[in-house]
């Protein structure tokens, strides 16, 4: 850079040291002695310092601001009520995910089918359920018995053979799961459809040319490949759903957010209890993200020539290299400790 002298244009051959001038060609006889000076990013360093200061201020505030009431937080975060509420949240998420994606997959293949009736029905379903806010839909299901007092089996538009009171078979929890599932299915349908149409058409042709039965083509050839495109978006959806279960508090179901509200309604410690809910949502989301990483990896089989190592494998490899390096450093000591034929033969 500009700190270098720019006068020595004619260095004597052999005597040239690296970087004797900006215009000076490097000495041809000794390229190994040239030193590389990395570029200096002053703006980048300044930005990094500013961000670190801001982050430190925030962490400092978390630790010192008495409003957070960390004592209250630690009293409640593992309390039985909260752990039970987390369990309810997990149940809601699991049921809505599994049922929602099952129904969504059916809807996706209806939209992809050659029957215009099935296509239209699936399209209409997705249109309707994506149009209704989840909270509105949940309240609808909560009031199901007002809509349909009895549910029964019989001939459509004809006599009913068997019926029950709708509230008795679909409790509040059931209504919540149905609501979440129906909402989720509409989104899942589009995610699955997106994955399926991303699979190369040649794959279906090859499967058809081999005479592989239709259902098997979908299960064994199309879906596993579609999963590559489905998983990242599905991961988003499931995490969204996990947090979306907090909406269910409108139905007075004892999930995480509802319980937290009940408790702070009683004792008035709003901030630390919101912190309890936040901590749990972050932990659950992190677990889902880790799960997503490994599921994605499994479906990437065959996609890369050599699959990249997992973080765990990378960590183990790092530890191994550290140990190897340490052993390397210690090795010269060994022959000294045990002088003898072994040491001599080295």
């Amino acid at each position: 850079m500009s700190t270098l002298p720019s006068t020595t244009d004619t260095a004597p051959p052999g005597a040239a040291t690296p970087g004797t001038g900006p215009g000076a060609p490097p000495a041809p006889d000794d390229p190994a002695s040239l030193k590389v000076v990395p570029a200096r990013h002053y703006a980048r360093w300044a930005a990094a310092v500013a961000v670190i200061v801001l982050a430190a201020q925030f962490v400092h505030g978390l630790a010192t601001n008495p409003v957070w009431e960390w004592g209250v937080f630690s009293d409640y975060v593992l309390s039985e009520t909260i752990v039970q509420a987390v369990w309810v949240t997990l149940q809601l998420t699991a049921y809505a995910t599994v049922l929602g994606f099952l129904l969504g997959t059916v809807l996706a293949f209806m939209r992809l089918s050659r029957s215009p009736v099935l296509q239209t029905v699936a399209w209409t379903y997705i249109w309707i359920f994506r149009s209704i806010p989840m909270i509105v839909q949940l309240v609808f299901w909560f009031n199901l018995s007002a809509l349909y007092e009895e549910l029964g089996f019989g001939i459509p538009f004809g006599p009913v053979f068997w019926s029950v009171d709708s509230n008795s078979i679909i409790g509040t929890m059931g209504a919540a799961i149905i609501g979440l599932m129906l909402h989720q299915a509409a989104y899942a349908a589009e995610i699955v459809r997106g994955g399926v149409i991303a699979v190369d058409h040649g794959q279906l042709e090859a499967a058809a040319a081999l005479g592989i039965p239709r259902l098997r083509q979908i299960r064994r050839i199309v879906l596993p490949q579609a999963m590559r495109a489905i998983l990242p978006t599905a991961g988003n959806e499931i995490i969204g759903l996990l947090k979306g279960t907090s909406v269910v508090y409108v139905m007075s179901i004892g999930e995480l957010f509802y319980q937290v509200q009940v408790i702070y309604g009683r004792n008035g410690r709003v901030i630390p209890l919101l912190l309890v809910a936040t901590a749990w949502y972050v932990v659950l989301t992190s677990l889902l993200s880790v799960a997503q990483y490994y599921v994605e990896r499994r479906y990437a089989r065959g996609a890369n020539r050599t699959p990249p190592p997992t973080p765990l494998q990378r960590a183990r490899r790092f530890v191994r290299t550290l140990r190897a390096a340490a052993a390397q450093r210690n090795r010269p000591v060994i022959p000294l400790k045990t002088p003898g034929p072994l040491g001599d033969s080295r």
């Binding site: 190369d200 040649g202 794959q203 042709e205 090859a206 499967a207 058809a208 040319a209 081999l210 005479g211 592989i212 039965p213 239709r214 050839i221 596993p224 490949q225 479906y299 089989r301 065959g302 996609a303």
Partner: peptide, 19 residues
């Protein structure tokens, strides 16, 4: 599909199942 099992077909782009 059953008839196709009697007819082998080799594609220009191989179309092997990559997974």
């Amino acid at each position: 599909l059953k008839q196709r099992t009697h007819i082998g077909f080799v594609f220009q782009n191989f179309n092997l199942f990559p997974h």
